[in-house]
Amino acid sequence: MARPSDTKTRIQAVARELFMEQGVQNTSLKQISDRLGITKPALYYHFESREALVRSILQPLLDDLDTFTATLAPGDARRLLEDCFELMWRHREVLVMLLHDPGTMLGLDLVERVWEWRKRLTALLLGPSPSAAARIHATVAIGGMSDCVVEHASLPFEEVRAAAVAAALAALQS
């Protein structure tokens, strides 16, 4: 018999897969339980709702974002961008899942957290009182790196990171 933690991990893996294929809102708990070959009540034993399941999948990303932003300090822009890229790369499946169903971010009140994270990173990259043009360049740099993580996830990490960080630095310097 599978241990509960094994079952929970299997549920999360199948849910993530289905959420990426058809979106969170279009995936029912019944579809997840059917794919796993377990009953819906067995799924409810581990997750009381679809929202709880989604939150459990997103939580590692949120925890890493909170830790990352709490420990950020002004420094080398290249290092900040590399660290940011690595964090996003580690959670690229979740980012893809969110892109397929952006309403999930609204439903789970994630938008404000993401904006705060990006504002903090931008402030560290640009310093106090940056111009509007500099803030726009930072938006392009951070957003472009995020897009690279999602769009080029099948390529080797080092290749994507090198090109994405170089492009982000170029956007900041423009």
Rank of each mutant, 00 (worst) to 15 (best):
A2C: 07
L99T: 15
L169N: 02
L155E: 13
L58N: 06
W115P: 03
V54W: 00
L99I: 13
A170P: 00
G127H: 05
V94K: 03
V160F: 01
S28I: 03
V160C: 02
M105A: 15
L72K: 03
M1L: 06
A138F: 04
I142Q: 13
S49M: 02
A171C: 05
E116Y: 05
T104N: 00
G37Q: 09
L108C: 04
F85G: 02
E82S: 08
A52H: 07
R113E: 12
P156V: 04
V160T: 05
L81E: 03
K30T: 15
A168T: 02
V160K: 00
L99N: 15
S5Y: 02
F68G: 04
A168I: 00
R55Q: 11
L43C: 08
P4F: 02
L155G: 04
S28V: 09
L80K: 02
D76K: 05
R50C: 00
V140W: 10
A153P: 07
V111F: 03
W115S: 12
P128C: 06
G144A: 07
L80C: 04
P60G: 06
T7F: 00
P60C: 02
V14A: 08
A170T: 08
E82A: 10
K119A: 10
D63E: 11
F85M: 02
T71K: 08
L155N: 10
L18K: 12
R120M: 06
S146V: 13
G144S: 11
A168D: 04
L29Q: 13
D83E: 12
L62M: 09
V111I: 12
D76L: 04
H46Y: 03
W115F: 12
P156G: 06
V24Q: 10
L53T: 00
H152D: 13
R16W: 04
L106C: 10
P102L: 01
M88A: 14
R3V: 07
V165F: 00
R113A: 14
K119M: 06
K8T: 08
E151T: 14
R92P: 05
F85W: 02
E86A: 15
K30Q: 15
D34V: 01
A162V: 07
L110Y: 05
S28K: 03
A134E: 04
W89E: 06
R55P: 01
L124T: 07
T67K: 11
V165N: 00
D83C: 08
E116V: 10
E159C: 07
G23M: 00
A163D: 09
L108E: 07
A52E: 06
E48K: 09
M105F: 06
A153Q: 13
P128Q: 10
A134V: 00
E86V: 14
Y44I: 01
G37H: 08
P74R: 12
L99A: 14
P60R: 03
E21Y: 05
S154P: 08
I142D: 06
S154I: 13
H100F: 08
L72G: 03
L61Q: 01
A170R: 09
V150I: 15
V96N: 09
A164S: 13
A73D: 11
A153E: 12
K30P: 07
L106Q: 14
R90C: 09
V111T: 10
R79L: 08
E93L: 14
S28T: 15
R161P: 05
Q173G: 06
Q59A: 11
E86N: 12
V96S: 14
I11R: 00
R90I: 05
H152A: 15
G107Y: 06
E112Q: 14
P130D: 04
L62G: 09
V24N: 08
